[in-house]
């Protein structure tokens, strides 16, 4: 049922010429000055290329700088050296073309669900008419099944619902790339599984470049095309990149019945264990 295939075959839905250089991270170094007057190097020479429709998961132990990497791509933090290019344009500041989904949702508590999405649309989609903006908001609320809760305030929602608002807000402004910082990290296991399915559904219908930070191997294999495994910080580097050979749309049950899944999973866990022992 699940046929192995390279991610290139499944991601030629957009222009093929961007396949290799949609997002390019080049010799990226991030260092902070430390107390002894020297420098603590967090990220030490990261090189990574992401295709236009590629779902990338970045996995590593906490403190390995994976969030920092995402923030640099998002433009919220600056690299010490090296560069990031999106469609050959260097990234220097935050931008709506690289919309973030935050681990702690970051919804504005004084706005309703609908207004939270609307705020993003208002800021980014200047060219749309009022009616178009409205449709865009409603479409994306419906996409994450939140139409019924549209007039509620974030404090009245469960964690899963909050993150669905975060995802609707991110997708509504049609970013070129989606950056997700442990988007399911704060959710309970059942909600997490459901929301993974929902996000994957949305992505499978409208594939785009996604960079997702996670510390959950199963989540990475289930959702991503490639898994970037990082070594421990400081001086974190990319240790290994795994290509996930399963075609989309994916079925979690079917995945779990395949031997490839367990080989991949064991391989990833071995990698993480190796670095866990080093760390402790």
């Amino acid at each position: 049922m699940v046929k192995p295939s390279s991610y290139f075959e499944s991601s030629d839905r957009r222009q093929a010429e961007f396949d290799t250089d949609f997002l390019v991270i080049q010799d990226l170094v991030k260092a902070y000055p430390n107390n002894e007057g020297g420098q603590t190097v967090i990220l030490d020479g990261i090189n990574l290329t992401v295709g236009p429709n590629e779902f990338i998961a970045i996995i590593g132990h906490s403190g390995c700088g994976k969030s920092t990497l995402l923030k640099i791509v998002g433009g919220l933090e600056r690299a010490t050296s090296g560069q990031v290019f999106l469609e050959s344009q260097p990234i220097r500041k935050p931008g709506a073309d690289r919309m973030m989904v935050f681990q702690q949702y970051s919804l504005l508590p004084w706005l309703t669900v609908r207004d939270n999405v609307r705020l993003a649309v208002d800021e980014v989609c200047h060219r749309l008419s009022l009616a178009q903006k409205k449709t865009l908001v409603e479409e994306h609320l419906a996409m994450v099944n939140l139409t019924a809760a549209a007039t509620k305030y974030p404090d009245e929602l469960s964690g899963g619902m909050k993150q669905r608002v975060g995802i609707a807000r991110a997708l509504a402004i049609r970013p070129k790339m989606l950056l997700m910082d442990e988007p399911f990290g704060a959710l309970d296991a059942l909600t997490r599984g459901r929301l993974q399915r929902q996000v994957l559904d949305i992505w499978e219908r409208n594939p785009q470049a996604v960079m997702m930070i996670t510390h959950d191997v199963d989540e990475a294999i289930y959702m991503a095309d490639r898994i970037v495994m990082m070594t421990n910080g400081p001086n974190a580097q990319i240790g290994e990149i795994l290509t996930v050979p399963f075609e989309h749309p994916r079925d979690r049950t079917a995945l779990r019945e395949s031997k490839d899944y367990y080989d991949l999973r064991n391989h990833a866990l071995d990698f993480l264990d190796r670095y866990f022992e080093q760390a402790s």
Partner: peptide
């Protein structure tokens, strides 16, 4: 977090003040 949202949405400084 709120300011990060504003920055990602490329809000001008003035609107960050009034809206966030």
């Amino acid at each position: 977090d709120y300011l990060d949202v504003a920055r990602v949405l490329e809000m001008p400084r003035w609107r960050q003040m009034t809206k966030i």
